[in-house]
Design a protein around this nucleic acid. Structure first.
Lengths: 136, 136
DNA sequence: ATAAAGCCTCCAGTAACAGGAGGGTCAACC
DNA sequence: GGTTGACCCTCCTGTTACTGGAGGCTTTAT
């Protein structure tokens, strides 16, 4: 059995985060000492590590909860996991596209801006008027 | 002078959001009717539109506040605006890189997963063990 | 006159924690 | 046996940028 600090070191998760996961019932502590200290065993440390990696893949807490229950259920079909993953991928792709467009547009604006002492600024000009919508 | 609803239509911002911008002092209402209804003039509508577009470019409220004050100050050097924009671009680029890596990794995992009735799932396997770190 | 639409304020909730106050616990050292 | 220092606990607040809703006026249209 490990203290929360040990579990933290094993999983690279901050102590605060582990407490939070316990609180929201994502990964509960295995038990408590008489003094009320949280205790974690190998299995729960493994689950914490699982969540840590899934979180790095941008899965939300709720999605982690779902993945965790599939992870726990050894008879589950891989179809379900793949479904969750694919819908997450779709979301990521959309975010990626948005961010790419954004970056390009902003780069263009920054390039057009002289960045000197003069007050004329294409960036502010672009922000002060609607883009495409031509007022007639 | 426009009601908050008119301002909303002119700027494509939800009424709630306009109220929020007033509350946090980003774009204050020009005045109030005797009954307490917010009023907006052309100028404040323009500022709302400015913020709306800057927000689309992922500028935070605080950054919008800064840009807005530069926008209002007609003697400001474009250097300052460019500085803010470039640092924002840097952040965007980092987000973009992270998201790209993430998407690629997740895609690889999804491709390896059969997604059928069998319980074996490379996605969960990848999450249940540390990635590169080879235990020896 | 009344109903619908619009406006107001205030409160709660969102995601996923982080920081800090205030206080108990444990191990080691002198 | 006392005391430091490292840990642990709970509870509260703050973060970002809003959104939704309750409860209650005001305005507009019929």
């Amino acid at each position: 059995m490990f203290t929360i600090n040990d579990a933290s070191k094993r999983t690279n998760l901050p102590v605060k985060t582990i407490r939070y996961y316990d609180e929201v019932g994502l990964v509960s502590a295995t038990g408590r000492t008489p003094a009320g200290y949280r205790l974690y065993d190998d299995r729960s440390c493994q689950k914490l590590g699982f969540v840590q990696r899934a979180r790095q893949f941008n899965f939300s807490i709720e999605e982690c909860r779902e993945l965790l229950s599939l992870y726990e259920d050894h008879g589950r079909p891989s179809r379900e996991v793949k479904k969750i993953t694919l819908s997450k991928l779709e979301l990521l792709q959309r975010q990626l596209d948005d961010l790419t467009t954004l970056t390009l547009e902003l780069k263009t604006l920054a390039n057009q801006c002289t960045g000197d002492d003069r007050p004329d600024c294409p960036i502010l000009n672009a922000f002060s008027a609607p883009p495409v919508k031509t007022a007639s």
